[in-house]
Amino acid sequence: MRDWPLWEVFVRSRRGLSHVHVGSLHAPDAEMALRNARDVYTRRQEGVSLWVVPAAEIVASDPGERDAFFDPADDKVYRHPTFYNVPEGVEHL
């Protein structure tokens, strides 16, 4: 059991919201991972839908490359939609 693979768990808390990463667990296969996720992460009505993903299948950015990946966005404030005049009465922006 020690060599059971690791799975990442994502829970959708309500209809209309997206699945959010909540943690991980060990399970021998996808079916058991889903059931274990139900038992470990939705005991207190946290969710209406579950995803489990093999942790090994997740391709993550390298913390060492953080500067090259993310810093160039720092000085490009014009990418934020703050330069538009919003007509009065427009809601839900």
Binding site: M1, L25, H26, N36, D39, V40, R43
Partner: peptide, 12 residues
Amino acid sequence: APQLEEDLALAN
């Protein structure tokens, strides 16, 4: 139980 996840399942 054999592992933590099963512990919780049986407790549930």
